[in-house]
């Protein structure tokens, strides 16, 4: 709840400051924000529906076994596969991650999911190849996958200490 107050205060003061310095720019920004929001809303709704129904139908035990604290490396592997093959925008991935965490999924698993989602793109390799060549594209994706797993492992070790 605290983060909502903080975000509101930040947004309000940023908006006020921007408005005082340049009305036109601020208006352009608000229009842009509305465009982003309205084109995100329908896909976000369907994702929320899918998650709501899936979580209601999946026994908690299954979710925790697959991605929870007992899942260990298996959870990270599952997250890495999903993150590498899917093309989900961050605007949707973060809200979904939050829901998964409040249902018992580990932060380290989420770190792997988010990092692979952002860095590894199996589907976009054909595009990437056109810029870097096949060898460099494959190499970058492979090293990014390893990096994501390392970040996940580090977070799982450090998380409980702090």
């Amino acid at each position: 709840m605290n983060s909502i107050y903080f975000t509101s205060a930040l947004t309000a003061s940023a908006l006020l400051l921007s408005f005082m310095r340049d009305r036109k720019k601020t208006l352009a920004a608000l229009i842009k924000a509305w465009k982003m929001f309205s084109s995100l809303l329908p896909p976000l709704m369907s994702i929320l529906i899918i998650i709501s129904v899936t979580l209601a139908l999946t026994p908690e035990k299954v979710l925790l076994e697959l991605l929870g604290s007992e899942s260990g490396f298996k959870g990270m592997a599952v997250a890495a596969i999903i993150g590498s093959v899917s093309l989900i925008p961050g605007f949707i991935a973060y809200p979904v991650s939050k829901i998964l965490i409040s249902n018992g999924v580990q932060y380290s698993v989420i770190a792997v999911f988010i990092t692979t989602l952002m860095m590894v793109g199996i589907i976009t390799i054909p595009v990437e190849k056109k810029y870097f060549g096949l060898r460099a594209a494959l190499l970058r994706n492979f090293i990014s996958l390893i990096s994501a797993l390392i970040v996940g492992l580090l977070i799982s070790f450090i998380w409980r200490m702090i």
Partner: peptide, 29 residues
Amino acid sequence: SLTNFREFFVEMMTIIPMMFILISLFDVW
């Protein structure tokens, strides 16, 4: 699933519009 959806939806709708305003301000400045 409706209970889940309602809870998720309310939370997203309070945060996401503010995030987009911040991101767009960032983008123009």
